[in-house]
Nucleic acid binder design. Structure first.
Length: 592
RNA sequence: GGUCUCUUAGCUCAGCUGGAUAGAGCAACGGUUUUCUAAACCGUAGGUCGAAGGUUCGAGUCCUUCAGGGACUACCA
């Protein structure tokens, strides 16, 4: 890396000139701001006390010294306390040649780092997926891919929340009002059908509460005694008792949902190494509770409920087992954590879960630490912000959601309309076109959701459609398609060139520097677990390329070496776009 | 009440461990194509970075206080 060379040279210069030992790693350099001449900048202000000179003089002396000892340095400029260094064009050209046709450019050695388990998606089985789930799925998938690119062995899993009162609500409503309706008879996708009864339940339940309040009950009591909630609770008891009829309905309705989810997952392009079902894991946590009691980490209250005191850690007392001996959410998660560790033997486990669960995961980690679990320190909650609508949070029960399937269909439709309006794809097969609309529509959606910092909440306005122009997935896909178009015309030209015959323009040099940064960006995205970092980078790359494309001819360039260089630059740009987008789960078309 | 978090252009967002004149896109206005894909490129306009203090040679970035949004603080999952 050139950065390391520069740091070493700077450290050497400072030691020689001012007699102060500095470790090269401790030297801070940064990219030169766009409006100044140069590639890298060293800020000399911190050095003034030891240099005993003013900022300009200090920078000047260091620059002069570097020019004599650092062969890669072309020139330097001093602006106030900033030393701007320009690297020789040859360096960038040799870089381009050295990458050549390396298909793994930017990727770390596979499986060279510790294994990581990424849990994401984690849906409830009582309703279809919505925009919030899409963000979760895309984030989980992208983070897993980025970690792979950083050399980790990565496993992915999906913990399906398939039991509990919410499913019983859908089940009860279906049993009451469904008349045996099935996905086949209704033509509805399975998860949507079940979701429909979840909404029906809620409507009915609210009406019952209203009626009871009119009869003189307090709201709180009405909510507890409404017939439908009692019936749903009764179903849950039956389910836990293993009642055959209840289990049969449960299995049937969950089956519908899974089939629906499978379709949506396939559209989203996500997949998992392992599925876990809470109906299988919810009992496991109870063993951990016993373990915690025997180790004295947990304590029992008079009514028999089991708790942990986390006041010292700045948290409250937390329930881990109910008085009736049934498990709660945290109990299950403790069990699942143990099971995941047994299955994958991973000490690092990432949970892609919304930020509303931050407290929960703090508690989970603290309990695991107190129990002395080896995997405790590696529990990491990748907490992402909610997707909000202009009027606030999405609520499935109230029907104020942006449905995943609807949105995907809408994106594909917009892609189709836009493509047809531009009329560049005439003569393509119907099959290829459908694939293209999917690629572009999903490219727009995925990029839109992934470009913002995962930790921040984001706003989605259904009234405004997701753009296809500017800082968007389709713009980047389009850039790729344009490059491919050139490369098709270039034919077999291999992009070879001699260094000596080439003069790099400003844009060309910028393009080289940008391409050079790809491995660093992958490392940074991995460290921060932020696909947004990668999105920004690829956008900037596409933007620089577009300018380069606009300003320079490739086919008609007469200087053979210059032409060869440009072809090589095109090839590498196309490769980085494709490779980077693949990490985000976004495909790029050859033509569009 | 307590804990956490957010606030940057009309809108949606970048801004790396503090560094130079705070950047994109969309929307608005204007320009660029007989020449490699105009889903592009260029330009104009738009900001006292929520407010006030502080630390520093230097603060959108760090600290304190305040204001406003949001989340969590269930024997729901």
């Amino acid at each position: 890396m050139i950065q390391d060379l520069i740091k070493a040279q700077l450290a050497y210069a400072i030691q020689q000139l001012f007699g102060i030992e500095i470790k090269p790693e401790a030297v801070v350099i940064e990219k030169t701001a766009a409006n100044f001449e140069g590639d890298f900048t060293y800020v000399v202000f911190p050095l003034l006390k030891i240099s005993k000179k003013n900022p300009e003089q200090t920078a000047q002396v260091i620059g002069d010294f570097l020019l004599q000892h650092f062969p890669e340095l072309e020139t330097f400029q001093v602006v106030k306390g900033f030393l701007n260094l320009s690297i020789k064009s040859d360096y960038w050209l040799r870089f381009l040649q050295s990458v050549g046709s390396n298909q793994n450019y930017g990727m770390a050695e596979p499986n060279s780092k510790e294994p990581v388990l990424v849990e994401y998606s984690s849906p409830n089985t009582n309703k279809p997926l919505h925009l919030g789930h899409i963000r979760n799925n895309l984030l989980g998938f992208a983070v897993a891919e980025i970690l792979k690119a950083n050399g980790h062995k990565v496993f992915t899993c999906n913990l399906v929340n398939d039991r509990g009162i919410h499913i019983c609500k859908s089940m009860y409503a279906w049993m009451q009002f469904g008349n045996g309706e099935t996905p086949e008879s209704s033509g509805l996708k399975g998860d949507h059908l079940v979701g429909k009864y979840y909404v029906i339940f809620d409507k009915n339940y609210k009406q019952e509460i209203k009626d009871l309040i009119e009869k003189g009950l307090l709201e709180e009591d009405a909510a507890k005694h409404a017939p439908s909630i009692l019936a749903a609770q009764d179903l849950l008891v039956k389910w836990e008792a293993g009642d055959e009829q209840t289990l049969a309905v449960w299995k049937m309705m969950n089956g519908w949902v899974y089939k629906g989810f499978e379709h949506t997952y396939q559209k989203l392009g996500v997949q998992f190494d392992q599925f876990y079902y809470e109906s299988n894991t919810y009992l496991l946590g109870k063993e951990i509770v016993q373990e915690g009691l025997s180790k004295g980490v947990f304590f029992t209250k008079e009514n028999g409920s089991v708790w942990i005191d986390l006041n010292e850690e700045g948290l409250d007392q937390k329930l881990v087992l109910r008085a009736d001996g049934t498990s709660v959410y945290i109990t299950q998660d403790l069990g699942t954590a143990e099971l995941k560790f047994q299955d994958f033997n991973c000490n690092r486990s990432i949970y892609v879960v919304g930020n509303e669960q931050e407290y929960h995961f703090k508690v989970l980690q603290q309990i695991a630490l107190k129990l002395g679990k080896t995997y405790a320190a590696g529990i990491y909650h990748l907490s992402y912000g909610m997707v909000e609508l202009p009027h606030g949070k999405m609520k499935s029960r109230e029907g104020t959601v942006v449905d995943a399937d609807d949105l995907i269909a809408e994106m594909e439709h917009t892609a189709k309309e836009t493509t047809q309006a531009l009329g560049k794809m005439e003569g393509e097969s119907e099959e290829a076109l459908i694939q293209l609309y999917h690629t572009i529509g999903m490219g727009a959606l995925k990029y839109y959701l992934l470009k913002v910092d995962p930790r921040k909440k984001m706003l989605f306005n259904p009234e405004e459609s997701i753009d296809f122009q500017g800082n968007t997935g389709p713009f980047i896909q389009y850039t790729h398609a344009r490059i491919k178009s050139i490369l098709r015309m270039v034919g077999t030209h291999d992009g070879n060139f001699q260094l000596s015959n080439i003069v790099l323009s400003k844009v060309e040099k910028e393009l080289m520097v940008k391409l050079y940064q790809y491995p660093l960006v992958i490392a940074e995205a991995g460290k921060d677990m932020s696909p947004g970092v990668l999105c920004n980078y690829i956008y900037e790359l596409a933007k620089i390329f577009s300018l380069f494309y606009h300003d320079h001819t490739i086919m008609k360039e007469e200087n053979a070496d210059q032409k060869g260089f440009r072809i090589a630059a095109c090839k590498l740009t196309a490769h980085v776009i494709k490779s980077g987008f693949a990490l985000l789960g976004i495909q790029v078309p050859e033509k569009m």
